[in-house]
Computed example of a mutant assay.
Amino acid sequence: MKILNLCGYSWEIGGPAKVIYDHTNVQIQLGAEVTILTPLSEGERLYTIPEGAKVVTTKRHWLARFIPEFSPELYRYYRQHAHEYDIVHIHGPFHFAGWVPFWVRSKAKKVFTVHGTLDRWAMQKSGWKKQLISALFQRKYVDQCDLIQVHNPDEEEDLKRYLGHTHPNVVMINNGMLLSDYDQLPAKGIFRKKFGIAEQAPLILFLSRINVKKGLNLLLPAFQNLLKTYPEARLCITGPDDGYLSYVTDFIQKQQLSQQIILTGMLTGTDKLEAIVDADVFALPTYSESFSLAALEAMVCGTAVLTTDRIGFGHLLKQNHAAELVTHDVSDVERGLRRLIDDPAYRLQLAAKGQTFARDVADIKKVATRLYRAFESIL
């Protein structure tokens, strides 16, 4: 089987690049040939290349500011090579790379993964643009796909609402991770030492793209209120800017919290794991996620998680009591933080449940094999 992935594949993109990387490793083990075709802007860093995979990079045109991922070079490559592939995997709607397969005739079957892009909150952002694109062609393109992957029941409902009917071939397969990557974790205390955080100081970690949808407008004031009881507490915000860093820095400056809130930029590899294992709480009060790998990473590492039911697997967290779930309200985020900081025994219990939960649902070998078999079924 020859598979082509169409998506931005850089460290700045975040989750989708990680998903492609993990699935590609398993697909290659199962005998597939995998190519990743990605537009890149100047200064963007290509994500780690899976061993045995082929990555083709093309330049984003300056018009990509108005047409996401616009790259004439990408179109030319696809037109020349589309006939070589059995599966074209499109990651999310509303971008040029995902439209190209519908403009070039080929034998390749089209697979579409929603990645949380069709929920009400996501559709409201830049709403008129998305509604116009949907009316013109995007809804038709999604409907024409041979297979659609959703991660959870919410995404299945979002898809049905978007299309106006039930698509005939939908599979529900969640994200996953290579669990062996977390068998040997860094020793505790390294991250705190690097950033001058006292051993006993409550440490709350936000680790994600700094994007409006991630709930920082809730977390920042909730943390500020927490400082009234725990003045030694620290909030570490880790991740690349995705259009919302100016809001964060303005808040820190206006509230004079430069000592209490630490901005690290994006951390990867061992540096990221050091931050996770040192945190008392991983906090992501998100408005919209497909299936948060960052939260699962925190759980696998044994860190208690505070999040919302929009994490992408909120229904499973409720069933397993594996995270502190809060609403999109500052006072409730503060309540959740206080409960976790006030009660170390509860925090440890929640962390243990989260670790068991993540290992049960997120084994990438099982997850990726299921998706690969779904690919086989449409060929």
Rank of each mutant, 00 (worst) to 15 (best):
L4K: 10
C7H: 12
C7R: 09
E12M: 00
I13F: 08
P16T: 03
V19G: 09
I20W: 04
Y21M: 05
Q27M: 12
V34Y: 07
P39Q: 03
Y47M: 02
G52A: 09
G52I: 03
K54V: 08
K54D: 04
V55T: 11
V55I: 15
V56T: 02
T57K: 14
T58M: 05
T58L: 02
K59G: 02
L63W: 06
E69D: 13
P72K: 01
Y77H: 10
Y78C: 01
H83Q: 12
H95C: 08
F96P: 02
W99Q: 13
F102W: 11
A108P: 00
T113G: 09
V114C: 05
L118T: 03
D119R: 02
D119E: 07
S126R: 12
W128K: 02
W128Y: 04
K130N: 03
K130I: 00
Q131G: 11
L132C: 07
D143R: 12
C145P: 03
Q149G: 03
E155G: 05
E157W: 07
D158Q: 11
H167P: 01
N169K: 11
V171G: 10
M172Q: 15
M172E: 15
M177G: 14
L179M: 09
D181C: 01
D183A: 12
P186R: 05
I190G: 10
F191I: 06
R192S: 11
I197Q: 01
P202N: 05
L207T: 06
R209G: 11
K214Y: 12
G215W: 04
L216K: 02
N217G: 04
L219G: 12
P221I: 05
F223M: 08
F223D: 04
Q224R: 15
P231I: 11
E232V: 02
L235G: 08
L235S: 09
T238G: 10
T238E: 14
D242T: 06
Y244F: 15
S246H: 10
V248K: 01
I252T: 07
I252P: 03
L257Q: 04
L257P: 01
S258K: 12
T264E: 11
T268D: 00
L273C: 07
E274C: 15
V277E: 04
D278L: 02
D278A: 07
A283G: 04
T286H: 06
F291K: 00
F291E: 00
L293G: 11
L293Q: 13
A298T: 02
T303Y: 03
V305W: 06
R310C: 09
I311H: 03
G312H: 11
G314P: 10
N320A: 13
N320P: 00
T327E: 15
V330E: 15
V330T: 14
S331E: 15
R335E: 15
L337F: 10
L340N: 10
L340C: 08
D342F: 08
L348V: 10
L348T: 14
L350I: 14
K353S: 13
G354I: 00
G354F: 02
T356H: 13
D363R: 12
A368M: 07
A368F: 05
R370C: 08
R373I: 00
R373Q: 12
S377I: 03
L379C: 14
